[in-house]
Design a protein around this nucleic acid. Structure first.
Lengths: 162, 162
DNA sequence: ATCAACCGATTGCAATTCGCAACCGGTTAT
DNA sequence: ATAACCGGTTGCGAATTGCAATCGGTTGAT
């Protein structure tokens, strides 16, 4: 977070943090694709982010408090990125943006099935998903329901259905 | 909308349309500040948008279908910008972003009171607000409830309270 | 009729950011 | 031994941003 802001409006401050074409893509892949390492985010990105842009965004997201960076104990060179509560709390924003995009933009079926599920699931499903993200990223107790599995299953079914 | 897209993901497509630091500011001012003319958007902007950026964003938002541009019958030089259904449908996105920003970022009280109201009001209030926006911008019948007045009253009360 | 204020922009310019490709030293698996 | 993989970094041309000055036409007051 910079020291000076354009204004104290919540929409403006949110845009100062997330108002570019890549930050939310990175968070989306961490959240919905469970990508936690640099190379995963780099090479498995649908949109093809460049490595310097990815490095810059990861650094900024850490700086802003949306994610943390830690050593991966299984590999001396690997960095493990985790969502913070601040990052996890973006679930309703993703749900709203996904619903809007799905309604008005030329989405593909496979890539919008998860947005559809999240929209139909409503706040109850978002809350369950956030609980699960807290388990994955923050070490909280794992909840009974796995929204992540539901989303992945729906996505893979959509892929298989062609 | 450009002819080629980075991917068909609803989040990505939404970012391709709105993923910059000014587009949502312009829409916010049209939606919550009822600013319909270029000069209003330019000079009454909290964040101080530059005229060339504003002109560019208005042009792009028209092109993408979020707003329309018409002659103002009362003044030959004035252009009247209106939200389309696509623009109005961003209300839940603004509500989610406002709630998130209010929780995690250094908002000021006066400028976040409307976000607070919108968050507490929930989907019912958002729907009433969208109905009202359809009346203001699309000529639909004016609904009984005026969320716009509620928001303005709360904002002015917050201003007066200092 | 004059003239200042206002209308929606446009232009020029410097600084920043973006996007791409090549590359880096260290680590791991074969 | 060595090839693949690790998280980046560097260089560079292109595009975007931000700022200030300016434009020709319109309006309202005198």
């Amino acid at each position: 977070m910079k020291d000076v802001h354009r204004s104290g409006c919540p929409i403006n401050l949110t845009l100062e943090v997330l108002g570019d074409r890549w930050s939310l893509i990175v968070l989306r892949d961490m959240m919905f694709g469970n990508r936690r390492h640099f190379r995963e985010l780099l090479t498995r990105s649908e949109e093809g982010i460049a490595s310097n842009i990815l490095a810059d965004r990861l650094r900024r997201l850490v700086e802003e408090g949306l994610i943390t960076k830690n050593d991966d104990p299984s590999h001396k060179q690997k960095a493990l990125y985790s969502l913070t509560e601040m990052g996890i709390a973006l679930v309703p924003v993703f749900a709203a943006m996904g619903a809007w995009g799905r309604r008005f933009l030329p989405v593909t079926r496979e890539l919008s099935i998860r947005a559809e599920l999240l929209e139909r699931g409503g706040p109850e499903m978002w809350e369950a998903f956030m609980e699960e993200l807290r388990a994955i990223h923050l070490g909280a107790p794992r909840p009974a329901r796995s929204v992540f599995s539901e989303l992945r299953a729906a996505y893979e079914a959509a892929l298989a259905a062609g």
